[in-house]
């Protein structure tokens, strides 16, 4: 089924379409959230809240704003960052690891059929530090290109091309050419 149709049905409060989208993106959202909060149970809780929020605010999504995946990815990153700003979270996690998502990928043995585990492992092994940083900021942290440019102290054009090359590497490893 076309993704557009699925999203449209989801916006019409079709539970089947909701479930399909959940199956497609819940693990990704959990990965992004987990990378930020670094607590599996908490990440699961936030991820569920993200889908609840998506269901309740489905009408606010329009294709003009971007991809559905990107829309829900934004919700997930914001929800996770909000969580890290909460008092309870700060009290329990005083020193958040400065680790990047790659550390999770390296130690993660819970890769299922959805994720090309061999490809991911190969990608991580080959991944240059410059790729790790840019992917971390753009996809896992939701930085704008301008913010990433400032954080990494490099021009926006460089960020764009470097990111492009890194994602190409990933696609080759995952066989998504």
């Amino acid at each position: 089924m076309q993704l557009e149709t699925l999203v449209s049905q989801f916006q019409d409060k079709n539970e089947k379409a909701f479930e399909s989208l959940y199956k497609m993106y819940s693990k990704s959202m959990h990965g992004v959230i987990y990378n930020i909060v670094r607590d599996n149970d908490l990440a699961e809780e936030v991820m569920q809240d993200v889908f609840i929020k998506a269901w309740n605010n489905s009408a606010s999504y329009t294709a003009q704003k971007g991809r559905f995946f990107t829309w829900i990815l934004n919700i997930a990153r914001n929800a996770a960052i909000d969580k890290t700003r909460s008092k309870a979270f700060k009290n329990s996690k005083k020193n958040l690891q400065a680790d990047f998502f790659v550390d999770i990928l390296e130690s993660n043995d819970n890769l299922n059929e959805q994720t090309n585990s061999i490809g991911i492992k190969k990608f991580v092994d080959k991944l240059a530090q410059k790729c790790i940083e840019v992917i971390e900021l753009l996809y896992f942290k939701g930085f704008t290109q301008k913010e990433a440019s400032e954080t990494l102290d490099m021009p926006i054009g460089t960020i764009k091309t470097r990111n492009r090359n890194c994602i190409n590497e990933l696609r080759i490893m995952l066989d998504v050419k």
């Binding site: 819940s26 990965g31 992004v32 987990y34 993660n108 959805q114 991911i120 996809y139 998504v176």
Partner: peptide, 15 residues
């Protein structure tokens, strides 16, 4: 590719 990459960061089975 991004969906797979981000999913790979999840140590949980979310289904």
């Amino acid at each position: 590719a991004i969906v797979q990459l981000t999913a790979a960061a999840s140590p949980s089975d979310t289904q």
